[in-house]
Design a protein around this nucleic acid. Structure first.
Lengths: 124, 124
DNA sequence: TCCGTAATTAGTAATGATTACTACTTAATA
DNA sequence: TATTAAGTAGTAATCATTACTAATTACGGA
């Protein structure tokens, strides 16, 4: 993977925020530095960085993919009213006190299923 | 909330599968019983059922919302190759053995953040 | 330092999921 | 049964994301 100027700025931009932004937000932010970058380039680089393990993709039920440059494992608090995503780093914290009213907790285990491992559908 | 024929069939269809389908799959399945139902109706009913707490929405990073009529809390195994979602009911199970290779575990806490609770942005 | 070349980009078009809109229909209640 | 607000079918619109292409560029080797 080459390290183009565009890819650098996309990555740095994501590292400098803790708001778990979507591609459009990253695009707007990066344009302050690279006014001619295209939205497609932002999308492609976010995907490349995800593949490289430098960025994590966050899906939180509002039809928008969000991204996080903090790859250390941590939980997220998602507000279903404003869509905001907070980090929950400390497992001892009372989320209900610190972040808001808790309605449900979802645990998602990501990986490659047995059929795909066997069938050679394994992708990367 | 009224209990229209369409809503009944959408709900029943979702109850009769454990594949965590998306709206299109539900649409195709429901059309076997109600050939004239429209895709918009399926979407609207899935959303209504979510609001009513009878159905859960599952976001798993492939640009499609999936739905689950099993509202009892349980974890999900998501294959990043084929997109399949398995239920993980038994917390004692070795997910790596039973479902596939585990790459990451994400914990999402859903709720309403403090600002929205205070600001009257609370929505339902 | 200069080439060669494959990776990357900008710009635009296409795709695909989801929502919005409207005139018509129907479930549920009095 | 009559009323009526909720629900529906069908279609158009929206919006996030991906695909495509000709031009540009990073980077290893001469």
């Amino acid at each position: 993977m080459r390290f183009s100027r565009q890819r650098q700025v996309v990555y740095q931009t994501l590292q400098q925020t803790d708001t778990h932004p979507d591609a459009q937000w990253v695009y707007n932010k990066v344009r302050e530095v690279l006014p001619n970058i295209s939205l497609g380039t932002v999308y492609r680089n976010l995907n490349e960085l995800c593949c490289a393990g430098m960025v994590k993709r966050i899906s939180a039920s509002d039809n928008v993919e969000r991204f996080d440059a903090r790859t250390a494992s941590h939980a997220h608090f998602v507000c279903r009213c404003c869509g905001k995503i907070d980090d929950v780093f400390d497992s001892n914290v009372d989320v209900g006190e610190t972040h808001g009213t808790v309605e449900s907790v979802e645990v998602m285990v990501y990986g490659v299923c047995s059929e795909c491992m066997k069938g050679g559908n394994y992708c990367g």
